[in-house]
Design a protein around this nucleic acid. Structure first.
Lengths: 341, 341
DNA sequence: CGGGCTCCTGTGAGCGTTCACACTGATCGC
DNA sequence: GCGATCAGTGTGAACGCTCACAGGAGCCCG
C-alpha cells in the first residue's frame, strides 16, 4: 500500500475495472451506456467510479473515436456587440450539451487564413464548427475548402443549408411599420456593410415594408456599424433633410447619428425619428432613449448549438430563426408636418 | 496504386517515414527539433512531409505528453466590453504562439461551478488557464481547488503572483489630476462593484490622487457597471450636487450618469464635469463626447499570454502592466465657480 | 440432450504519437 | 589497435481509450 508511487496518478479505466472486479471493457460499456451490461456489474462499476473519483480521459477517447466533444467557433468580428453575445449564448449551450468550445477569430477574411484555422480545427478533431458574424466572403472561403465536419453559420441567409439566424427581415419590418404608423412617408435606412448577410437582410426588410406601405424606398445609405459613420451621416442628413425618419441598422450607428443630427441643431424626435437595431443595454440611456429592435443574441447562440446537434443526428429539430422585437422608447414621433405626397 | 482504400486517410508519421526512408522515430525527432539528426535525413523527412501534406496529430501527441497546446480561458463576464475585448487580444496572441483557446464562461461564481470547469479543463489537458474579469471570489474559488497547471489572472491585483493587468491606479490618477488641474476640488467617484479588483484599484487611485492634491475624498458611490445605475446616480447628483466633477469607473455608467444629470436640467460640463473609463469606441459620440481613460484591452490579452508563456518557462519576461491613457473630450471643464475651501 | 439463440463478458489489437532504451558505425585518445 | 565516447538511428513499450471479435453461460425448442 505504501509502496504506491508518491505522485498519485489519476485513476484510469483499469483501476476502476479492478476495483469493480470486471474487465476494463465492461467499464467502457457502462460509461458509453451500452445495453448489454448486467445490472449488478453496472452498479459495481458505478460505485467504483464514484469511489475513485474516476474521470474518463477525453484525449485518449478522441484519439480512437476521432471526435473530441469540441465545437470550433470561427468568428470574424468578436469585438462587436452581436458576435460577442452570440458567443456567450453559444458557449453556455455547448457546455450544457457536453461540448467544449474552441475559438478562433479572424483578423482578415482570406481563404488562406480560413484554411489555416480549419486545418487547426481539423487537427483538434472538432466535431463541428460554428461561424459567427459571417460575411459572404467568409462562407465562400469556407465552402471552397473541403472539410469533414458539419458547419453551422449564425446567419440569416435563407439560402444557407444549415444555420440559425435572427429573422432580420421581420426586424426591419417592425421598425419600418412603427414609423409608418406614426405617419412617416420618407423613411431612410442607414445600413450595415453590404457584404454582411444581416445587413443585406435588413435592407430587404426595409424595402419590403416600404413597398407594403406603398412608399418609395429611396434613401439608402451604407454604413459600417460604427458610431463614427453614424455621426457623419447625421451631419449629412441634418443638412439635406432627405427623410423624416431613419431606420439605422445598429445601435452604435444610431448613437452617432443622434449626435450628428443634434449637433446640427435638429431635435430628435421632433425633426427626425430614429429607430436603431440590437437593443444593447446602453440604448435605453442614449439621449433621448433609443427606439430600437431587440435581437436576442444569446438565444441565437443557443440555436446555433441546436442546429449543430441536429446536424450530428437526425433527432434534433432544426428550429432556425429567432424573432426580433420592437422596443419603443423616445426617438420616434410623428413627422414634423404630414407631407402629403 | 489503385488498390489503396477509397477513403484516403490522412498521412501519419509512418507514411512519412516510409517515404523518407527512415524510421518514424526520426520523423518525430525532426518534428520536435531534436539536435541529433543528420542534415540529409532532416531534408528527406521535410520533403516527405511537404509531399504528403502531413500534419502531426495533436490528439495523439497530447495523449502521451499530457499537454495539449491549449489554454483555457475562464471568463465571468464575457458580455462586458472589457472582458470581450481582452478575449480578443488573448486569442490572437495565443494563436500566434501556437496555442488553441478553449473558453468557458461562468454563469455564477461558486466553487462547484469553478471546480466543474477546472475539471473539464484538466480533462482536456490544457497547459494553463487564464482568468478574465476576476472577482476576488473567483480567484479564491480557484485557489481552493488544486490544479496542476499555471493560472494567470487578467487583473490588476498587485498581490497576485502571476498575472497581467492595466495599471488601474494610474488610470484613476490621470482622471483625477485632469479634474484637479481644471480647478475642481469636490471630485466624486462612481465606482464599479467593490468585489471587482479593477474597481477597487480605481477607488484607491482616486483616493491617492485626491490626497496628493490635498483634497478630501468624500463622495464615493458604488455602482454596478450598468448605464442604468449611472442614470440613477445622475438623478441623485443633480438633486444634491455633492460634487462638481465625477470620475466614473466605466463608460457605460458615465453614459447613464450623463443622461440622468442632463434630464434633471444640469448642463455637462458647465454644471458637472464627467470622466469615464475604458474609452469604448462609442464614448466619442456620447452627448457631449466623453472625456475618459483608455484601456487597451487587446494589449492586456496579449500580456496575459505572455505571462502564461513566462509561467511555462523562465525565458519569457513577465512584463505585467499596461498603461492607461487619458483622452480629453468635452465632458470636462472648469467648475461652475471656484470654491475656495 | 444437443443445436441454436441471446445475453453478458473478456481478450486482442489499434488509434498516432513520444519516451526510454539499445544499437550501429565513426572518431578519439593513448 | 583497443576501449571509450559520441552522433545518428531504430525498436519496444507506453499513453488511455474503443472497436472487433471470441467465448461462456443460460435458455428455448425440437
Amino acid at each position: 500500500m505504501s509502496l504506491e508511487p508518491a505522485v498519485k496518478r489519476a485513476p484510469v479505466m483499469k483501476d476502476v475495472a479492478k476495483l469493480a472486479g470486471v474487465s476494463y471493457q465492461t467499464v467502457s460499456r457502462v460509461l458509453n451506456g451500452h445495453p448489454n451490461v448486467s445490472a449488478s456489474a453496472r452498479e459495481r462499476v458505478e460505485a467504483a467510479i464514484a469511489a475513485l473519483g474516476y474521470r474518463r480521459n477525453p484525449v485518449a477517447r478522441s484519439l480512437v473515436t476521432r471526435r473530441s466533444q469540441t465545437v470550433g467557433v470561427l468568428a470574424s468580428e468578436l469585438g462587436q456587440y452581436g458576435p460577442s453575445h452570440t458567443l456567450l449564448g453559444l458557449e453556455q449551450a455547448a457546455r450544457d450539451a457536453g461540448y467544449f468550445v474552441s475559438i478562433a477569430s479572424l483578423r482578415e477574411v482570406t481563404t488562406p487564413a480560413v484554411q489555416d484555422i480549419l486545418g487547426r480545427f481539423a487537427d483538434q478533431a472538432v466535431d463541428g464548427i460554428i461561424v459567427i458574424g459571417p460575411h459572404p466572403g467568409l462562407l465562400e472561403a469556407l465552402d471552397a475548402i473541403e472539410h469533414s465536419f458539419p458547419v453551422v453559420a449564425a446567419t440569416s441567409d435563407p439560402d444557407r443549408p444549415a444555420g440559425a439566424g435572427v429573422d432580420q427581415r421581420l426586424g426591419a419590418r417592425l421598425a419600418v411599420r412603427h414609423l409608418v404608423e406614426l405617419g412617416h412617408t420618407r423613411i431612410g435606412h442607414l445600413s450595415g456593410p453590404s457584404d454582411w448577410y444581416d445587413a443585406a437582410e435588413r435592407v430587404e426588410g426595409w424595402r419590403e415594408a416600404m413597398a407594403e406601405a406603398g412608399l418609395a424606398a429611396e434613401v439608402l445609405i451604407e454604413g459600417d456599424w460604427t458610431a463614427r459613420r453614424g455621426y457623419e451621416v447625421g451631419l449629412e442628413i441634418a443638412a439635406s433633410r432627405p427623410a423624416t425618419a431613419m431606420f439605422v441598422a445598429n445601435d452604435q450607428m444610431a448613437l452617432g447619428l443622434l449626435r450628428g443630427v443634434q449637433e446640427s441643431g435638429l431635435a430628435v424626435p421632433r425633426d427626425l425619428s430614429i429607430v436603431g437595431y440590437d437593443d444593447q443595454p446602453e440604448a435605453a440611456y442614449f439621449f433621448p432613449p433609443l427606439t430600437t429592435v431587440r435581437q436576442d443574441f444569446e438565444a441565437l447562440g443557443r440555436r446555433c448549438i441546436e442546429a449543430l446537434l441536429a446536424a450530428f443526428d437526425e433527432d434534433h429539430a432544426p428550429a432556425r430563426s429567432v424573432e426580433p422585437q420592437l422596443v419603443v422608447r423616445s426617438t420616434t414621433a410623428a413627422p414634423p408636418q404630414v407631407v402629403a405626397r
